[in-house]
Simulated assay, not measured.
Amino acid sequence: MNWNPLTSIDQLEEINTLSQTQPVVIFKHSTRCSISAASLSRLERKWDLQKAGDVKTYFLDLIAYREVSNKIAELYGVDHQSPQVLIIQNGKSIYDNSHFGISFDEIVENIKPVSA
């Protein structure tokens, strides 16, 4: 799995632009939480590049970059959770889940085709 580090609020504008042409997944991870570590490990073990298709993945260490996490909650209208996964398409969160609800299969099921 190829994570892109999400470390600044400015990257959210890039994510919104990118999400116009390809789905973006953001994984918000707490380095202090065993559930977060377990959810991340489970997602990475299950991740299938072929099934995921043209998804760009971002990883947020929300302990180190809490202001980015807060901005994600505000920008996409989702309650903060940890761990949490969001799918961003067309500049909007079309799906989010947290804790052990995070599942590769659900992520793939909720990705919408990008209209040309």
Score class of each variant (00 low, 15 high):
F104Q: 07
I63W: 08
T7V: 13
K46Y: 12
A116I: 07
I63S: 09
K112M: 13
I111A: 11
I26Q: 14
G101M: 05
D54G: 02
C33F: 08
S30P: 10
G101W: 03
Q20F: 11
N110G: 07
L60I: 02
Y76H: 13
N110E: 07
L43P: 09
E67I: 05
I94K: 06
T21S: 13
N97A: 03
S82L: 10
Q89S: 08
F59V: 03
S93T: 09
G77I: 04
A73N: 01
A37C: 00
L18R: 08
A116G: 12
N70V: 02
I87F: 11
I63G: 09
K71L: 09
L18S: 09
H29S: 05
T31W: 10
K51E: 05
L6R: 04
A38E: 01
T31G: 07
L12H: 06
P113V: 03
I26R: 13
L62H: 09
S8Q: 13
N16G: 14
Q20K: 14
V85P: 00
N4W: 15
L6W: 03
S98K: 03
L12S: 04
S93L: 06
Q81T: 11
D48V: 01
P113N: 06
I111H: 12
S98A: 10
S103I: 01
S34N: 13
T57L: 15
I35C: 03
N16E: 15
E44F: 01
G101V: 02
A37W: 00
E106H: 10
W47L: 11
L18A: 11
R45L: 06
D48Y: 01
Q20T: 12
E74G: 12
D54C: 01
L49A: 14
K71T: 12
G77D: 15
D61K: 04
D105A: 11
G53C: 02
R45M: 06
K51I: 02
N70I: 02
D79T: 14
K56G: 11
I9C: 06
V85A: 08
S8M: 09
V24F: 03
E67R: 11
E14V: 05
P5G: 07
C33G: 08
Y95S: 06
K56R: 15
R45C: 03
N2G: 04
Y95R: 07
S41D: 01
P5I: 07
D48T: 02
E13L: 04
N4R: 14
L75R: 12
L40V: 00
D105E: 14
E13Q: 09
R66Y: 00
E109P: 02
L12Q: 05
K112D: 10
H29V: 06
V108Q: 05
S39G: 01
T17W: 09
K112G: 10
E106M: 08
S41W: 00
K28T: 08
W3N: 12
V85I: 10
E109A: 12
S69K: 00
T7N: 12
S30D: 07
S93V: 06
A116E: 10
P83R: 04
S82T: 13
V25G: 02
H99E: 00
D10I: 04
S98F: 06
Q84R: 11
N4H: 15
I87T: 13
I15G: 00
R32C: 11
I107R: 04
A37S: 03
G91R: 09
Q81H: 12
I15K: 01
E44D: 04
L60V: 01
I72G: 11
S19P: 15
I102G: 01
K56C: 15
Q50G: 00
Q20H: 13
S36W: 05
